[in-house]
Amino acid sequence: MDNIIEINDVSVTYQKDSSVIHAISHLTLNIKRGSFVAILGRNGSGKSTLAKLLNASLLPDSGEIFVDGINTTNEERAFDIRSKVGMVFQNPDNQMVATIIEDDLAFGPENLGIPREEIRKRVDWALKTVGMYEHRMRATQKLSGGQKQRVAIAAVLAMSPEVLILDEATAMLDPRGRSEVMDTARKLNKEKNITVVLITHYMDEAVDVDEIVVLDSGCIATKGSPLEVFEQIDIIKNTGLEFPTATETSLKLRGLGYDIPVVLTDESLVEALCQLK
């Protein structure tokens, strides 16, 4: 697998009350094409700054970022990058332009000057992919939170992106809405081979991803598979994260001398306990 995103020694700083703050500090990271990556970290750790860097909304003060081989500082290609890297934000209400769902989906492709017949095809395809096709003529306002975010994902899909960034897109949703969004993201990753970058505060959402990147004060505190990351007890605690319940239970049982593996999900914990019995 090649890298869809390459981040080389990137720093972003800003001024606050006469002191210089490093939002991102000498960060180097590659994201493989077609992978599902979760970015975790407390508020202010640089997650959203990183997201903005990936679609050229924000340019690094030093270092370089390549999206599908294009340098994000290349102003002429900024819109190429944005059509390759789609973003879904936290508040579903603040990212829709039109009142009617299909009109909202058309906004991106219209901006790119894509021919009408092609827009029609893309809009219909995107709505079907997220399971909102039968609602296409409804008002965005009447949808549930989960439905709104699925529409926002479809709006990104209509631009046929390579990467989907979910920037705390589940934070304002109820549990049902959250699983709707997560199921959609997983489906796009598996079936359409779209690279997903998931920024979240919910550890449950990160247990089955390909790679977790933990940010702290603009640096990578650790990264690896979910198991590799959640095994590092001190780092998880010091970066303000928490363990999935099953993981914490398995770690504590190991601490008490039980011979069970570190697990990530309720199901695997139950499996491990039954093996032990």
Partner: peptide
Amino acid sequence: TAGLDPAGKR
């Protein structure tokens, strides 16, 4: 606790 990070929730 809506919208807070894990430490904030706790």
